[in-house]
Design a protein around this nucleic acid. Structure first.
Lengths: 295, 295
DNA sequence: TCCCTGCTATAAATATTTTTTATGACCCTT
DNA sequence: AAGGGTCATAAAAAATATTTATAGCAGGGA
């Protein structure tokens, strides 16, 4: 029984046509017939019912059942390839959200340079939720993400590094600009710009809005934190973003919230449980963990 | 690339000895050597380092990484075999805890007989947590279990059917015997017998004890509900069991608890997401769901 | 009806892959 | 230095997968 046979069968279930599958894999048609026969012999069950009338193909219950298992098998196989390829190229595939990136890198670049790890880093930037998905799908190995709830996932290891607060940010010319603090309810009188669903941001936003019993007016969901800040700095809207997204030079004012029990942003190191912690990766993780000590 | 090669490699990582692995699979030693070579070619990476000195074998990082993925692959493969075998024998492998069993079967046997499904049922009885594990490991297909928290699991589908209360049960000669209700704190003055960790029971027990701020004296953790009842009926201890475990003829007295926010037992239908819902299985599930209507 | 088309199955030949047999090389132990 | 335990290699054999060529089946159109 060959991995290739699984691929043939997988495709057959989708295409419902032997000839087409053969074409897809650039093999002759009997190859597919015989592959299916091999599997039917292996499982002692009819997997495909050929219906000459109406030119139709029916996958039997056993066939469907098998199909359900082939999917994760081929997935693991692909994952193994991706991971070992990355290892061969001596790359650590590291993902983080842009906001974390601009906060994180300055504080550890020295360390990374000194240890020679910087050359081995392939970085990927996307929203936290997007990064999480990339880890699960094996496109990257390690992520540094912000999350409102401490992530619990069957297939992942997570380490909380930092807990940050969300703040209201406004333009210097905003009526709120010289307030020492503000409640979310007060702030909700103004129009909002928030990050889109690839980020953890709107999750926290929904939570605090729900908690405060208000439904703020969201005028735009941005895919980019800089765009968001620009909109805020021009006074077109206010926003609700994590502490660590606010950099020293930004032409915006940040105001702490007074709400009790407001959502917090946990910065977490995340990787697949199945990631083999090579010396290089362990070294890198140590440096990432030192980020914990910084502020 | 053969599934067999994965098995060879998997075993090699565990045994750290080519000759031993060959012996295990009853093949010649070069077979293993060549299988490893094939995989090293497939992944373009050294997987095993042969150390002639000290007769030692080292699995490289790539090898270990691969190993992490082979495990779930072989697992899925085994699962597929088990499931299709059960299908071939036209069996529905159905697991439930003994307590649920004695409550459930009387109420649906008629239906099962009429539909002819009874012959197709292979039943397995074990504690709820044990049944859950059996489903995950593919030993059974469908479970009817009691759980304190609604189970959420990545790989499972769960349907809540009933919510039951836990009660204090005592011997007819107990000082508590003619009470209309009792608080857990009061009850905790008496020694307890509970079910062991294969059951949901002790989870609820810990919860209510914690909630009531007491640490009851547990004199025995039974693996069997009848043993437990026998101990209770003889007045040697009291217990805390689900409503549905108490059958009409039992020589024990059950007393409702007065505690606020006490844990509840949810009776749930559970199966793997990957279970192919054949006509027979759908029919069976319909009957199980009717159990919901009974009391 | 007959022929053509689009589909899958079968058989024999071929190609490829896997396993065995037989042997060699390495290194540790005694 | 001999012997035992380890894995590697090469050639031969066995098993498996693929192709080529052909057949069979059903439906649609002339």
């Amino acid at each position: 029984m060959n991995i290739q046979d699984l691929k043939y069968f997988y495709r057959l279930v989708q295409d419902q046509n032997f000839t087409k599958v053969a074409g897809y894999f650039k093999v002759s048609q009997p190859t597919i017939t015989l592959a299916v026969k091999r599997m039917e012999k292996e499982f002692q069950a009819k997997l495909v019912e050929r219906n000459y009338a109406h030119n139709e193909l029916r996958i039997t219950d056993s066939g469907k059942q098998l199909y359900h298992h082939i999917e994760p098998i081929l997935n693991e196989w692909r994952l193994a390839h991706q991971e070992i390829d990355a290892m061969n190229q001596q790359k650590i595939r590291f993902g983080m959200s842009p906001t974390i990136s601009s906060h994180f890198f300055p504080s550890v670049t020295n360390q990374l340079l000194k240890s020679g790890l910087l050359n081995h880093l392939y970085t990927y930037e996307a929203g936290s939720r997007e990064v999480l998905r990339s880890i699960l799908e094996g496109r990257i190995d390690i992520g540094l993400i912000g999350s409102v709830a401490p992530q619990i996932h069957d297939q992942l290891v997570t380490e909380s590094l930092k807990v940050m607060h969300f703040k209201i940010v406004v333009s210097p010319s905003s009526p709120l600009a010289n307030r020492k603090s503000v409640s979310f309810q007060e702030a909700s009188a103004f129009p909002f710009v928030v990050l889109n669903n690839h980020f953890a941001n709107p999750v926290a936003f929904e939570q605090i809005a729900h908690h405060a019993g208000v439904t703020p007016n969201i005028i735009y969901r941005s895919s980019n934190i800089d765009t968001l800040k620009r909109i805020v700095s021009r006074g077109m809207a206010i926003s609700y973003i994590a502490d660590l997204s606010i950099l020293p030079g930004d032409p915006i004012i940040s105001i702490p919230l007074t709400d009790q029990g407001q959502p917090l942003l946990t910065v977490m190191l995340v990787y697949r449980k199945t990631l083999e912690l090579s010396e290089r990766i362990r070294q890198f993780m140590e440096i990432v963990r030192e980020y914990k000590q910084t502020d």
